[in-house]
Design a binder for these strands. Structure first.
Length: 966
RNA sequence: GCGGGUGUGGUGAAAUUGGUAGACACGCUAGACUUAGGAUCUAGUGCUUCGCGGCUUGGGGGUUCGAGUCCCUCCACCCGCACCA
């Protein structure tokens, strides 16, 4: 009987489905284990082979943990709200509900095809009103809470109100306006509107105004990546900054706890570092500088208050509010010219710019202590959005300031002493201050304290902690998202009561934007009349808490039963890509902390361990059109376009070629003058390439034949300059590049095709065999054959093509037991540490060894089936049934490793002379060093290499090696 | 510019603690079986050399009896970024 994977996989899936083996209970006496995949957005393109990489890893791990005796929660659901569905709706008029449903059906089919062990009864979908009801509910909890700085936790708003009524806000600094002060009497005298406006400045979910990318022509707000050089990506319309009413989450209040929490979770250092950088905590001081001859006062934030006497100039962001008012008449024109230059530059360009640029404003600031006059400059290297948008420049202590000073020949004050060499800034803090008035002779650390004391006394500054992170914008002017459970009346936002949830997303006639930058919901008269909020929640709302809903997905009374969240607790392992490093992960960490603070759950970090998966990339192949000949009418060939350099993407090859001429002779074609030649992408050519980058003439034509449209495009006018191989075959060399898999690059591989050809088990094992989980690696269809061959070889241990079932009851030999148990040990260890590629190798080694031993014994082959179950569950199930078992293999145990079968009593030692291995000798493990040395010295090869000398030293490491130093 | 990461055969990679570099596969070469092979099996395959041997983990240097692994330095590529003051 042959390995018929199609039939085997169908039967296995049916059995699992019929017997409901993947159903997970919330009550069990087994220890729990929660393993989670990142929530997929069901796009219209379906899955490609890169998507399931993490899912396969988590599936293997989940199955492994089950077999190890854990009650494993391994759920899957869909993050349905999102821009692509809405964009598609705008273009086609199809309701996102319908397209999303279709996409999910396709995803589900593809996921099932791979054979995942999800408990689909627990599926959650964010656009399901039974789900978003609780998203709205959590929003209301955030709306009804503020962050108590003293307690460092979220507290319900009514508690704050009663404090205000009794003592005003002296003990509760307003996070949105630190200067706001009112007494109890004042509070009680405020109108409701005034009170609510104040409370809004405390709420964790609050409404405010913020700048967005507004495209008038499209009547809509655009994401950053939809804006290219100040124009909309679609259509190229101008985009301007516009202030719109927006909802926000006051995540900045959690900055410190989000930082501290990183110490309690098992994320990669790189991931933690990214989050730390995003939060961007810096400790320093804010100091005000008076501008000479004006009333203007410019505050700067610095992390180095100790360098205050080294300030030689000041730099404002070109966008800074005061730039125009402080610039002098003589400098005005230069300043304006510089601002125009900066406006034409993207943030990216400003960031990467090495060339120093800037402009003097003509104004001078007064040093707060010395009274020295300091020139005020503007430069693109200072950004408006960070700190106060202004810096005090200390050239001797900051490299960038130093270069700026050198470039514009601004005199540099040395406060560092000998350690500053005049050539480059000295940024270390191990020096003693000089030229620094009252802090002379102090270390930077002591000086900072003293400077801050003095600033406080003089009322010109204070110690300050600055965060880079901003509050999270939490609304979109879009249709396809959760409606806010908010009603506006007389400018006051009133929350809906819990009874009124869910506030259902209404039907709309068109998905186009509403008036004045509002979302589509503003087009519904009844919605507006009721005063409902017309914004909707952003894509990350539903995904910020979905891991909680999986614990108790059908609960109608709560977002999840407390007993369930207590039982499942944190996600033990979360697998996903690094692209969510700062967005999703920070938001869900914040939501978890807020829910914890308010007493709804018992843990304040959602994900105990995070495992990152790498990207699966694809090889793309290009030919350089320089190496092509164009066919002319007279049949003479011309070398085309050697003077062109630019990379030409497929889309840029014009459909109609314009007749042109070359050296006076008319060609059958030429490219339009504005189109330049360069690299031409060979679509789907991968299977025709040999030895990495060789495309033989026959293969080239075979490839062209398969794709008639390409034949016209490429071969009608162009003929490659063929090279000749040694065996006289004609070929061209193609250029190979590794790229992200994407539809637009024509390098996408669909898992369904692979599975149809090789089966799900092969697909699963091959994805793991490609390389380590966390690094990106290219997909190479050729390699899959090896894994498929392995599975057939594995099958043949049990089934002979002619004789059928060949498993015997004979007792296993020592060698066979050793092969088995060595593999159990290695595969168990590798699975535990997510080293799935090496585990697959070990399976291959085991099967190779057992085949060589001609082993067909049940004693060996039964545990082997159990061992492979997490990796290749379908074939395992089939063989398990053939073994005569009736229960599913899914319910079986992981085989137990027994040390005694693998213990060795001797070892073949490498014998090295001066570190170079010259021979190998076998010794008993308990042999003494003296005995070993004696045998080694007598060895012929050793004698030869010793050349009669006596070794100075013999190094013997038991169980490892022998090295003789001469 | 800053931060993080990666460099090992023709290719994907392995080497878990400083101890035989290249396991396991792909590809390639030769052969066996076969009506056939895109099935299966056998042998070989880092580079170099007829061979003995020599060389080899991006380059250079160091520590060590011994370095892919540790240290210094340089280079290349990839990812992220808000020049973070």
């Amino acid at each position: 009987m042959e390995y018929n994977f199609k039939e085997i996989e169908q039967n296995a899936k049916k059995k699992w489905n019929d017997e409901g083996v993947y159903k997970v209970s919330n009550t069990s006496d087994k220890p729990k284990f929660y393993i989670l995949d990142m929530f997929p957005y069901p796009s219209g393109a379906g899955l490609h082979v890169g998507h399931p990489l993490g899912y396969i890893a988590s599936d293997i791990y989940a199955r492994y943990k089950r077999m190890k005796g854990f009650n494993v929660l391994h759920p899957m659901g869909f993050d349905e709200f999102g821009l692509p569905a809405e964009q598609y709706a705008i273009e086609t008029g199809q309701h996102p509900v319908d397209t999303t449903k279709k996409n999910i059906a396709r995803y589900r089919e593809q996921l099932d095809n791979i054979g995942f062990c999800y408990d689909w009864d627990r599926q959650v979908r964010t656009s399901d009103k039974k789900y978003y009801r609780w998203t709205q509910w959590i929003f209301l909890q955030l709306f009804n809470s503020y962050f108590d700085k003293k307690l460092q936790k979220a507290v319900p708003i009514p508690e704050l109100v009663s404090v205000f009524e009794n003592e005003g806000n002296a003990k509760h600094i307003c996070p949105a306006d630190e200067k706001l002060r009112f007494t109890a009497t004042e509070w009680n005298a405020f109108t409701e509107k005034e009170q609510q406006d104040i409370l809004m400045n405390y709420r964790l979910a609050f409404c405010g105004f913020g700048e967005v990318n507004w495209c008038e022509a499209l009547g809509t707000v655009l994401a950053n990546d939809e804006v290219v050089n100040g124009l909309s990506e679609r259509g190229g319309h101008p985009v301007v900054k516009k202030k719109l009413r927006q909802w926000y989450l006051r995540i900045t209040e959690y900055a410190d706890r989000l930082l501290d929490g990183l110490n309690t979770v098992d994320f990669s250092e790189a991931m933690k570092e990214m989050q730390r950088n995003w939060i961007g905590k810096s400790v320093g001081a804010q100091i005000s500088f008076q501008i000479k001859n004006t009333t203007a006062n410019i505050p700067v934030f610095t992390t180095r208050p100790d360098t205050i006497f080294g300030v030689d100039f000041m730099v404002l962001a070109p966008e800074h509010d005061l730039v125009s008012s402080i610039s002098t008449e003589e400098q005005k024109q230069a300043v304006e010219e510089y601002i125009t230059y900066v406006k034409s530059r993207s943030e990216r360009e400003r960031m990467a710019e090495k060339k120093i640029s800037g402009c003097f404003t003509g104004a001078y600031a007064i040093h707060p202590f010395s009274g020295k006059e300091i020139p005020v400059w503007i430069s693109e290297y200072v950004l408006a959005g960070y700190g106060t948008g202004a810096i005090m420049a200390v050239p001797c202590g900051d490299e960038r300031d130093h270069k700026f000073a050198q470039h514009f020949q601004i005199p540099i004050t040395n406060i560092i002493g000998e350690k500053y060499n005049g050539e480059e800034a000295y940024a270390e803090k191990d020096f003693t201050l000089v030229n620094s008035d009252f802090i002379n002779g102090l270390s930077p650390k002591d000086a900072a304290v003293k400077v801050i004391e003095r600033m406080l006394a003089d009322k010109i500054g204070e110690a300050k902690v600055n965060f880079r992170m901003r509050d999270a914008a939490f609304s979109r002017q879009r249709y396809w998202g959760e409606p806010f459970p908010i009603k506006w009346k007389d400018g006051i936002a009133y929350p809906l009561s819990e009874m009124e949830l869910p506030l259902e997303l209404p039907h709309v006639e068109s998905y186009g934007p509403g008036p004045d930058g509002e979302g589509p919901l503003a087009n519904i008269a009844s919605w507006k009349e009721e005063g409902y909020e017309t914004n909707t929640m952003p894509g990350y709302a539903g995904s910020s808490w979905y891991f909680l809903r999986f614990m108790d997905p059908h609960n109608e009374h709560e977002f999840a039963d407390r007993a369930a969240t207590d039982y499942w607790n944190q996600v033990d392992i979360y697998i996903g890509g690094t692209e969510h490093a700062v967005g999703h992960l920070l938001y869900s960490r914040m939501w978890t902390k807020a829910l914890y603070d308010l007493g709804f759950i018992g843990f304040d970090e959602p994900f105990k361990k995070l495992v990152n998966q790498g990207m699966i990339t694809a090889f793309s192949y290009f030919v350089d059109l320089k190496n092509y000949f164009a066919k002319s009418k007279s049949n003479n060939s011309f070398n085309v376009g050697y003077s062109y350099h630019r990379i030409l993407s497929l889309n840029e090859i014009p459909e109609e070629f314009v007749i042109g001429n070359n050296n006076g002779e008319e060609l059958e074609w030429s490219f339009r003058p504005e189109i330049q030649l360069g690299l031409y992408r060979l679509k789907d050519v991968g299977d025709f390439i040999e030895s990495g980058d060789i495309l033989y003439k026959e293969s080239y034509h075979k490839w062209l034949d398969e794709y008639p449209e390409r034949k016209i495009e490429l071969s009608k006018f162009l003929e490659p300059q063929w090279l000749k191989s040694e065996s006289n075959r004609e070929y061209i060399k193609v250029k190979v590049e590794t790229e992200k898999m994407s539809k637009s690059k024509f390098n996408v591989k669909n898992p369904d095709d692979i599975i149809a050809q090789y089966g799900a088990d092969t697909f699963r094992m091959y994805e793991m065999f490609l390389g380590p989980l966390d690094v990106s690696k290219p997909w190479d269809t050729k390699g899959i054959e090896g894994v498929h061959r392995f599975l057939r070889k594995f099958w043949r241990l049990y089934n002979d093509d002619a004789k059928g079932w060949i498993v015997t009851e004979e007792a296993a030999t020592e060698a066979e037991l050793k092969a088995l148990h060595k593999s159990i040990k290695k595969i168990e260890q590798d699975t535990e540490r997510f080293s799935f590629n090496t585990a697959v190798s070990q399976f291959m080694i085991a099967v190779n060894e057992l085949t060589d031993l001609n082993c067909h014994k049940r004693e060996i082959l039964k545990p082997l089936v159990q061992l492979i179950t997490p990796y290749a569950p379908h074939i395992a199930e089939e063989l398990w049934q053939q073994m005569g078992e009736t229960d599913s293999i899914i319910l079986a145990d992981f085989p137990k490793y027994e040390e005694r079968y693998v213990t060795e009593n001797s070892k073949v030692y490498p014998v090295a002379i001066n570190g170079k291995t010259r021979t190998e000798l076998e010794f008993a493990l308990d042999a003494s060093q003296a005995d070993i040395e004696k045998v080694v010295m007598e060895n012929e090869i050793v004698q030869k290499w010793l050349e009669g000398k006596t070794p100075k030293k013999i190094i013997f490491v038991k169980g490892k090696m022998i090295n003789m130093v001469i």
